[in-house]
């Protein structure tokens, strides 16, 4: 299993983002950097059946399982969405399925990016979180 639990990693991310304070431009620049550094999903896994339809940005999600827990890889055609994905993958990858299903991911709200997980947001992220949990459920 991962050396850090979900809440520990969330805490780490909150501290990282606290550095930016109210400066949304730096915060988004950081998010864009995270998006750019996201290890891409294997080309073989970037298939139509792995697309999570948002209205505008498309998200691909692949879920595997190894000795360390769930392994998620993902991609999006929008970079801000990709930055959000990078955070979610960092928090939920290598965790055990039970913890993933129970995770409330409150760090998203605490770092001021909650709007990206709103059901009215046309980016597919909320569906992606639901899909990550569904995949974890299959491994229980």
């Amino acid at each position: 299993m991962a050396t850090m639990g979900i809440e520990e990693i969330e805490k780490e991310i909150i501290e990282e983002f606290d550095f930016f304070g109210d400066d949304w431009e730096s915060k988004y620049e950081h998010l864009i950097e995270l998006g750019k550094s996201l290890p891409l999903i294997a080309a073989a896994d970037k298939t139509d059946d792995k697309i999570i339809q948002g209205c505008q940005s498309r998200v691909w999600l692949n879920a595997d399982f190894d000795d360390n827990g769930m392994v998620y890889t993902a991609d999006s055609d929008a970079i801000i969405t990709k930055g959000m994905i990078a955070l979610l993958v960092r928090v939920l990858s290598h965790q055990n399925p039970t913890d993933i299903i129970r995770a409330n991911l409150s760090f998203i709200d605490k770092i001021g990016l909650k709007e990206h997980l709103s059901p009215t947001r046309a980016n597919g992220l909320l569906s992606m979180v639901n899909q990550m949990k569904k995949e974890a459920l299959k491994r229980l």
Partner: peptide, 13 residues
């Protein structure tokens, strides 16, 4: 090379 969604999200800010 940029997604319209990203441009729109940032301009909204």
């Amino acid at each position: 090379n940029q997604h319209p969604f990203d441009v729109g999200t940032l301009l909204d800010k």
